[in-house]
Amino acid sequence: MGSQSEQRGGSARGPGLGLVVEGITKSFGSGRDRALAIADLSVEVPRGRFATVIGPSGCGKSTLLKVVAGLAEADAGTISLFGDAPEQARANKRLGYVPQRPALLPWRTVLENVRFPFQVNRRAGTLATRRPEEVLTSVGLGEVLGRRPHELSGGMQQRVAIARAFAFEPSLLVMDEPFSALDELTRESLRHQLLALWEADQKTVLFVTHSVTEAVVLSDLVIVMSGPPGRVHSVVPVELPRPRGATLEGSEEVQELERVVRRELSAAVAAGEQAQ
């Protein structure tokens, strides 16, 4: 177990390395109801890499994401985002968060929704090089800038949410199963749009998913979690060439990698059941 967890070794760590999670523990509740969500979890995502987190339901994936995004505080351990603590990264607006549902503001148009991150916490400023209109156009929403969210399909709404997170060009993007509510076809098309968007200016990404295919096609590394309590079971490196087009899906290399991830995933589930 853990034989493939190359990322866990004692590689040189320091600022600028990317996302470094070390010995994170997080529990909810107190007293007898106290439940351990994450136990002594360590993982690393090098700068500019796309990492997906996959694991059985309730294994603490979302909790890990929230702790990394600074939306929840860990009981123990340290997190460094390019040398900064999550709170500092938030204060500097270096963090883009895409929740499970689009979470758009219904009274704002598509364009105004994407402008939202620019309008709050102005002191931090942004490093944006492209205008929100351009980002929206690049994900195929150039025609609906003035529409309101309720006029869009679920897939389009989620694209707006992704554009909102990309447009102000944060250093780290944190996505919590953003495609989980969509149908398979929409999901596939969004996957490729996300890849295209990401390949344009390779940000560091932490992406939670339930889909093995999604994990393989999108990532540079797949973090397989077991739990609860959440632990890193193994890290599967995905060394497929980029840019990755639609033709990649279903190819032999992808299928082989999917088999590896699936094997790791069932081992992780088994490990979790044993632990209980």
């Binding site: 939306l71 938030r90 607006k93 968060y97 929740p99 979470a103 503001l105 009274w107 916490n121 909102r164």
Partner: peptide
């Protein structure tokens, strides 16, 4: 206000005044 919208605002370190003015008051209308 949708809790996930609040999380997005929090991930951007939006101030309480910003959350009030840009999220809470419009949501309350």
């Amino acid at each position: 206000v949708d809790p996930e919208v609040l999380e997005v605002a929090r991930s951007l370190n939006a101030s309480r005044a910003e959350v009030l003015w840009r999220l809470r008051i419009p949501s309350s209308l």
